[in-house]
Simulated scan of single mutants.
Amino acid sequence: MTPSDLPSPTYHRTDATFSSQGEDCAAWLYRPAAAESPRPCVVLAHGLGATREGRLDAFAGRFAAAGLNALVFDYRYFGDSSGQPRHLTSIKEQLKDWRAAVRFARALPDVDAHKIALWGTSFSGGHVLLTAADDPDIAAVISMNPFLDGHTTLRSTPPAQALALSRAGLRDVARAALNRPPYLVPAVGGAGTRAAMASDEALQGFLAMFPDQEPPSTDISARILLRLGMHRPVQRAARVGCPWLLQAGTTDNITPVDPVRRAVQRAPHARMSLYEGGHFAPYVGAAYEKVVTEQVDFLREHLH
C-alpha cells in the first residue's frame, strides 16, 4: 500500500464511483474517523491532464483531519475513470463531471447537502468558478493557481510555442474528423518541448509531486489547445455568490495573477491570497503548507 492508503488516526479513505452521462468517474471518499453526521463535503479534481494521484490526497487528507468529508475524482477519459478515447479533454464534459460529482456528494448519507464546497486547481480552478456560478447552493469555493482567462495566458505564451500548439490542435481536429485516435501532446514538459506548459520550472515542479515514483503521463488531446485562448471563466466571476478563496503565485507565468485580481473585484464574497513561487509551488513544501492551512481555516469558517 502507498502511504495515502494506510489507515489514519483522524480519517479513512475508501474508493467510490459515480456516473456522469453513462461514464464511471473513479473517486476517493475521505471521512473523518470521529465526527458527527451529517458533515460538510469538499469536492476536488485536478487541472489540465492531471489526475487525483497528483497530490490531491495531501489536500483531501487535511480537510478530513479537520472534520470534513472530501470527494476526490478523476474526469472521464482520465486516470481510473472510464471513457474512450483516453486523454480526450473537453471543457464541456469536465463541467458535466463536476455537476455529477456534486450530485453524488449531496446524496451521500453522511453529507450535509447544504454545505458542499468546491476545490479546484489550475484548469479546474476555473471549472469550480463556472460550477458555482450555475449552482447557487454551493456553500464555498477554493481556486488555487486558477486558470481564469485564456486571453491573458495566451498573451504570455511565446509566439513560436503558440504556433506549434495551434498546429498540434489542428492536427488533432483533422484526426477526429477521420474518426482516428486523438493526437496527443503533454500538458507539462521542459522548455522547448511541444507541451502545453513548456518550461523547466513547470517540469521540475510537476516531478516534485512524485518524488518516490515514476510520474504519470499528462497527455491531452491537442484539440483543447485551440479552445484555451477563448476560455474565460473570469467573465462569470460576478455570479459566484458564495465565499470564494483565490490563491495565486507571485511568479506564476502559466496562470498569471491579474485575472485573479479581476475575479476578486467582481465577485461579492471573494478574497485573494498570494503565495511565494510559480504555478507548481503550492503542491509541495512551504507553499503547500501555507495554502492548505489557509484552505482549512477558510472551510472551517464557512462550512461549520
Results as ranks from 00 to 15, higher is better:
residue 300 R to S: 11
residue 86 R to W: 05
residue 67 G to N: 05
residue 161 Q to M: 12
residue 144 M to K: 01
residue 83 G to E: 02
residue 269 H to N: 14
residue 194 R to I: 14
residue 272 M to E: 12
residue 120 G to V: 03
residue 72 V to K: 00
residue 229 G to D: 06
residue 265 Q to C: 11
residue 211 P to W: 07
residue 141 V to G: 01
residue 57 D to W: 07
residue 45 A to Y: 01
residue 27 A to D: 02
residue 184 L to V: 08
residue 248 A to F: 07
residue 110 D to R: 03
residue 133 A to P: 05
residue 69 N to G: 09
residue 198 A to L: 09
residue 202 A to G: 09
residue 302 H to A: 10
residue 207 L to T: 13
residue 16 A to N: 02
residue 256 P to D: 12
residue 160 A to V: 13
residue 228 L to P: 01
residue 85 P to A: 04
residue 53 E to G: 10
residue 149 D to P: 04
residue 225 L to V: 08
residue 268 P to S: 09
residue 121 T to C: 09
residue 158 P to V: 15
residue 278 G to S: 04
residue 105 A to V: 03
residue 135 D to G: 06
residue 138 I to G: 00
residue 169 G to F: 06
residue 178 L to Q: 13
residue 102 V to Y: 03
residue 122 S to A: 15
residue 260 V to A: 06
residue 255 T to Q: 03
residue 230 M to P: 09
residue 60 A to Y: 05
residue 84 Q to R: 14
residue 221 S to L: 03
residue 20 S to F: 06
residue 75 Y to C: 01
residue 139 A to P: 02
residue 92 K to F: 15
residue 280 F to V: 04
residue 186 P to Y: 07
residue 46 H to V: 09
residue 63 F to P: 00
residue 41 C to E: 05
residue 224 I to F: 10
residue 49 G to M: 06
residue 142 I to P: 01
residue 132 A to E: 04
residue 163 L to N: 12
residue 219 D to K: 04
residue 243 P to S: 09
residue 64 A to W: 03
residue 169 G to I: 07
residue 253 N to R: 10
residue 151 H to V: 15
residue 291 V to A: 12
residue 119 W to S: 00
residue 62 R to C: 07
residue 235 Q to K: 13
residue 265 Q to R: 13
residue 235 Q to C: 14
residue 181 P to Y: 09
residue 227 R to C: 07
residue 105 A to T: 03
residue 179 N to W: 14
residue 66 A to M: 05
residue 202 A to S: 13
residue 277 G to M: 00
residue 197 M to N: 11
residue 153 T to G: 09
residue 23 E to R: 13
residue 40 P to V: 05
residue 62 R to G: 05
residue 273 S to Y: 10
residue 166 S to P: 06
residue 88 L to N: 03
residue 43 V to H: 01
residue 145 N to M: 13
residue 82 S to R: 04
residue 24 D to G: 11
residue 269 H to C: 14
residue 116 I to Q: 01
residue 142 I to G: 01
residue 87 H to R: 11
residue 108 L to C: 08
residue 264 V to W: 02
residue 100 A to F: 09
residue 84 Q to W: 13
residue 12 H to G: 12
residue 37 S to R: 15
residue 123 F to Y: 15
residue 31 R to E: 10
residue 135 D to C: 08
residue 218 T to I: 09
residue 220 I to Y: 04
residue 238 A to R: 08
residue 59 F to Q: 01
residue 265 Q to T: 12
residue 178 L to T: 13
residue 136 P to V: 10
residue 150 G to I: 04
residue 175 R to T: 14
residue 64 A to F: 09
residue 291 V to K: 03
residue 18 F to C: 07
residue 116 I to Y: 01
residue 221 S to F: 04
residue 36 E to D: 15
residue 76 R to F: 05
residue 175 R to H: 11
